[in-house]
Amino acid sequence: MNNEKILELQNVSYWYNSSKRILDNINLNFCTGKIYAITGASGSGKTTLMSLLGGLDMPREGSILYRGSNINKIGYEKYRKECVSFVFQNYNLINYMTSLENVMLTAKSSPLPFLQEVGISEDEAKRNVLKLSGGQQQRVAIARAIAAETPIILADEPTGNLDEKTSNEIVHLLCEQAHKKSKCVIVVTHSNSIAATADQTYEIIDGAIKSVE
């Protein structure tokens, strides 16, 4: 397993239109070949951290480095396109398209193998995504993230709408991307089972982040 440092937060702080810092002077490293869980109470800053890691927002203070280069210098659009893929709680699929068409939006090669990799059959791949179960739709969303062939996958509450059995299957797929494909997988979650499965769990409390053993 290749554990190369790929993302680094250096003295990162973030606040909204108030004096309270939702993230306060965060220093953190993420490596390839590992799955990370980010936990914390609602409103603690988990999704804010995910937005910063994904280049969807900029830190108020500090820097975020991708393989040693500030993502500000890489360019946020280039970073989002080439370095990170997202998996969301509500799937964010285009609902008038089939699974194949959704994955084709990011795939650099045939989309079907990526769908089959996550357990979507060829017949299911040709269906409109609204005719699939929630678990199947999340599999399609993961296939879309995999197909982009980025080294980082960011998942925001990916099992929040799923039953326990399906949730465990989704977690297994994300773990495989980290451990077998040497991706860096970062999951924001309230799920204790995801936190227990992750290689490293962090908790955000009062703007600070701590390692959870």
Rank of each mutant, 00 (worst) to 15 (best):
Q138L: 07
T106H: 12
E61P: 02
N90L: 10
E61T: 06
T166A: 15
R144E: 09
L105R: 04
Y76V: 11
T197F: 05
M50S: 01
S44Y: 00
A37P: 04
E203Y: 03
G45L: 01
K210Y: 11
F114C: 00
V185Q: 09
Y14K: 15
N168I: 11
E149P: 00
K78P: 03
K180V: 05
N192S: 14
K181A: 12
E213Y: 08
S193C: 00
I209W: 00
M1L: 12
V84F: 07
F86Q: 00
F114H: 03
L130P: 06
Y79I: 07
K131L: 13
R21L: 14
K183L: 13
V84K: 01
S182L: 05
S42H: 09
K108G: 15
T189L: 02
K126N: 15
V118S: 06
T201D: 02
T189Y: 01
P158F: 07
S99K: 00
L52E: 02
V87Q: 04
S85C: 03
Q177P: 10
S193V: 09
N17D: 10
I194D: 04
A195D: 05
V171T: 15
L49P: 04
S193T: 08
R139Q: 03
G134F: 00
A196E: 15
K73V: 07
G62I: 04
L115P: 04
G75R: 07
Y91T: 03
L162G: 02
V212S: 09
G43E: 08
A141W: 00
E164I: 09
T98A: 11
L28V: 13
E61C: 05
K5R: 11
A195W: 06
V103M: 06
R139Y: 01
S191V: 06
P113V: 14
E149N: 14
P151G: 10
K81M: 14
G75L: 12
S44N: 00
L65A: 11
E117M: 11
Y76N: 15
L162I: 04
Q89K: 05
T150L: 07
A141D: 00
T159Q: 07
E169D: 12
G135H: 03
Q177G: 03
K165T: 07
V118A: 06
L115V: 06
K73I: 08
I170L: 03
I26H: 08
E203N: 10
S133P: 13
Q116S: 08
E101G: 09
D156K: 01
H190L: 05
V12A: 02
R21W: 08
Q136K: 05
T32E: 12
I146F: 06
G119Q: 09
N95L: 11
N27R: 12
E117H: 10
L132T: 08
E77S: 13
Y76A: 14
V171C: 13
F114S: 01
Y96L: 13
Y16R: 03
D57S: 10
Q138Y: 05
I120R: 07
R144Y: 08
E122G: 12
M97T: 02
G134L: 05
T201L: 02
I38Q: 01
I152V: 14
S182K: 12
A41N: 10
Q200K: 11
K34Y: 08
V185E: 10
A195C: 12
R67A: 12
